[in-house]
Design a protein around this nucleic acid. Sequence first.
DNA 1: ATTATATATCGACTTTTTTCGATATGTCAA
DNA 2: TTGACATATCGAAAAAAGTCGATATATAAT
Lengths: 104, 104
Amino acid sequence: MEPIDVFKALSNKTRLNILQWLKEPEKHFPKQGAHLPKEVSYKGGVCVGDIQEKAEVSQSTVSHYLNMMQKAGLLESVRYGQWTYYRRNEEAIRQFAEFLKTEI
Amino acid sequence: MEPIDVFKALSNKTRLNILQWLKEPEKHFPKQGAHLPKEVSYKGGVCVGDIQEKAEVSQSTVSHYLNMMQKAGLLESVRYGQWTYYRRNEEAIRQFAEFLKTEI
DNA sequence: ATTATATATCGACTTTTTTCGATATGTCAA
DNA sequence: TTGACATATCGAAAAAAGTCGATATATAAT
């Protein structure tokens, strides 16, 4: 987890929003998991399409953003059927906040 | 203090270094304050020239960087004679770390 | 097999950031 | 008041990031 990459990932309004939305998925993505039966629904994850709709950018852009955030360590993903679910990597985020507090 | 501006300011290796160097000025800028008599030396501040030398970028670039970091709220400056001294704005940095921990 | 849907990747164009040298401004010393 | 030095600002060129539509890939449904 390179701090510079995390700072870059967060220095964009839309990506920052996405990270914050994913803190409370059920609040910001009420339709979430419509595709999946509850028993397999990916805990806290939201599919790309739902994020795209909310973020109001093109499909390719949101896909690019999510990939970038995952590479930075902020998100993790799971593919379920044709959907990819993204959720926060809370442990990495916590570590980053800790790094900021102590090293910066 | 706009979080996005802070993230942008920190998403560059040189600027991140500067912020960290200024955490321990006497360690990273041993010649610091050579210009000033001790009794007026700006507590914890380092002049642009010393920062430039250590950062190894051009004078205009370091000036631009420092201005950007100040606008983001990370640094504050005082002019003393022909020198400008920059130091960390610890309160703003603390607030930012707190924001990151609770809001991100 | 074909079609439909979700996501990823590609290629291109636009915008922003990086970075510099040149110049301007402000201050000090002779 | 002239010359030297520190810093700031300007203008430009190069590099990187943002962003899109088109296309590829993978899965699901018919």
